[in-house]
Computed example of a mutant assay.
Amino acid sequence: MAPLILHALEKRFGPGAPAVRDLSLTVRDGRFLALLGPSGCGKTTVLRMIAGFEQPTDGSILLGERLLADAATMVPPERRNMAMVFQSYALWPHMTVAENVGYPLKVRKVDRERARQKVCEALAAVRLEAYADRRPAALSGGQRQRVALARCLVTEPDVVLLDEPLANLDRHLRQEMEETFREFHARSGATMIYVTHDQSEAMALATDVAVMSEGRLLQMASPEEIYARPEGLVVGGLVGQGSILSLRLPPGSGRLLDWPRLRDAFQGTEEGLMPADVLVRPQDVVLDATGLAARVTSSFFEGERYALRLELANGQSLRAFSRQPVRAGDTTSVVLASGWRL
C-alpha cells in the first residue's frame, strides 16, 4: 500500500470563502487519522474529495504515485479501492446482514464461494456471525454500525473513510464502538480517515489528529503532541479542557512554563514584558496554600473528583480538579504546575 497525499487542496462551491483552502497533509500507510474541527470547518468536504464525491477546485489527491483527483482529473469512487462508513449506516433494508456485507463483492462479480468465505470472515471480525440472516431493522444501532464496518472489511480497501459514524449512538454504545474501531483498524491494516467534532473520540481512536478551522489545517500531530503542545489559540481551545490565560512574559521565556515563571507573570511589573496567551490544563492546577488567591465559582462532583471553576484575583478563570470536597463560594489558593505558551 501507499501513503495518501493531499497537496494544496482547495474546494469552492461558489463566490465567497472556499470550504477548503491550501490544505496539505500526508497520511502514511496503515495510520488512523482523525480530522477534528467544529461544524462547517471543511472536514467532511475533505473526506468527500478523498472518496471521489467532490472534485477539487485546485490542488491534488494522490495514493502513492497514482493521481486520484485534481482540477482536471477525477478517478470515480468505484475505482479508488476505498470504503466509506456513513453516519446513517446506508444499509439495504430488504437485504439480510450477510447480503449487505457481500453486496460490494457481488458488484465486483467475485466468485460465489469466495464471496461467502469473505463475508463469514468479515462478520467474525465484528462479532456478528450469529446475525447473518437478520435484517437491519432487527438490529441495534451499534450492530448496524458493525455491519457497515464488515461491509468495508470485505473489500480489503486501501483506505477506509468514516464520516462521524458515532454521532447517532448513545454514550454507552459510543464507547463500545470505539473499541470495535480500534480492533477493526488493527485487524484490517487499512489506512483510516475519521471525521469528528468530538475531541475525545479523536484522542481515543487516532494515531494522528489533524485540527481544522475555517477550511484550513491548523496542526497535524499525534494525540499526545496535540494535547501537550497545541499550536495557537484555536487548537488550544478545541483540544482538552484547558484554560487560556492572558499574561505578560519576558521575551525568550520559551513555550513550556513552570510555576516560578508563571508566578512571576502574575506578580511581575518590570518593563519589556510581552503579552502572551498561556494554556493551563486542569490537572496542572494544584490547590496549595502557598499559591495564588482564587475563589471557587462552581463545583461539580463527577464521581471520582470535583470539577472546579476558579476565579483569580485579576478576574481570569481556571479549570481545576480536586479529590477533596470543595464548594462554590469557597476561597482557596492555587499553584500552576505548568503552562504552555500558545
Rank of each mutant, 00 (worst) to 15 (best):
residue 21 R to W: 12
residue 170 D to E: 09
residue 259 W to I: 13
residue 117 Q to K: 13
residue 263 R to F: 10
residue 251 P to I: 02
residue 220 M to T: 05
residue 7 H to F: 05
residue 246 S to A: 15
residue 305 R to P: 07
residue 152 C to S: 14
residue 324 Q to P: 01
residue 47 L to C: 10
residue 165 P to E: 09
residue 66 R to G: 09
residue 46 V to H: 03
residue 302 E to Y: 12
residue 23 L to G: 02
residue 223 P to E: 12
residue 235 V to N: 03
residue 111 D to E: 15
residue 83 A to N: 01
residue 196 T to L: 06
residue 201 E to P: 01
residue 230 P to Q: 04
residue 139 L to T: 09
residue 219 Q to H: 02
residue 85 V to R: 02
residue 146 R to I: 08
residue 278 V to L: 11
residue 22 D to P: 10
residue 140 S to W: 00
residue 290 T to Y: 03
residue 150 A to K: 04
residue 265 A to G: 08
residue 174 R to E: 12
residue 42 G to K: 05
residue 155 T to Q: 13
residue 41 C to I: 07
residue 51 A to Q: 09
residue 112 R to D: 06
residue 272 G to D: 03
residue 144 R to P: 07
residue 93 P to S: 01
residue 3 P to G: 08
residue 140 S to F: 02
residue 160 V to M: 14
residue 319 R to E: 13
residue 235 V to Q: 04
residue 12 R to K: 13
residue 114 R to T: 14
residue 216 R to Y: 03
residue 224 E to P: 00
residue 235 V to P: 04
residue 280 V to K: 10
residue 283 Q to M: 12
residue 101 V to C: 04
residue 203 M to F: 06
residue 339 G to H: 10
residue 55 Q to I: 06
residue 102 G to I: 05
residue 157 P to E: 00
residue 272 G to N: 04
residue 187 R to G: 02
residue 29 D to I: 00
residue 170 D to K: 14
residue 185 H to K: 06
residue 337 A to P: 00
residue 231 E to D: 14
residue 298 S to V: 01
residue 66 R to M: 06
residue 225 E to K: 07
residue 5 I to F: 03
residue 2 A to Q: 14
residue 147 V to M: 07
residue 98 A to W: 00
residue 102 G to A: 11
residue 281 R to V: 04
residue 34 A to F: 08
residue 191 T to W: 10
residue 99 E to I: 04
residue 252 G to K: 10
residue 193 I to Q: 10
residue 326 V to K: 01
residue 242 G to T: 11
residue 238 L to N: 00
residue 252 G to W: 09
residue 17 A to R: 13
residue 203 M to R: 05
residue 33 L to M: 02
residue 311 E to F: 08
residue 218 L to M: 03
residue 254 G to T: 03
residue 297 T to K: 11
residue 99 E to S: 07
residue 228 A to P: 01
residue 129 E to G: 03
residue 244 I to R: 14
residue 260 P to A: 08
residue 22 D to Q: 11
residue 202 A to I: 01
residue 107 V to S: 07
residue 124 A to M: 06
residue 231 E to N: 14
residue 287 L to R: 12
residue 225 E to W: 03
residue 328 A to R: 09
residue 172 H to N: 14
residue 307 A to R: 15
residue 138 A to N: 10
residue 58 D to K: 12
residue 12 R to S: 15
residue 256 L to M: 12
residue 176 E to W: 03
residue 24 S to K: 02
residue 227 Y to S: 04
residue 105 L to H: 11
residue 197 H to Y: 09
residue 274 M to T: 12
residue 82 M to Q: 08
residue 245 L to A: 09
residue 312 L to Y: 12
residue 309 R to T: 15
residue 245 L to M: 10
residue 271 E to V: 13
residue 50 I to A: 06
residue 37 G to A: 03
residue 323 R to T: 12
residue 324 Q to G: 00
residue 296 V to P: 05
residue 252 G to H: 08
residue 279 L to N: 10
residue 20 V to Y: 04
residue 90 A to N: 00
residue 312 L to W: 13
residue 49 M to H: 04
residue 111 D to R: 13
residue 243 S to C: 11
residue 152 C to E: 00
residue 287 L to W: 03
residue 112 R to K: 14
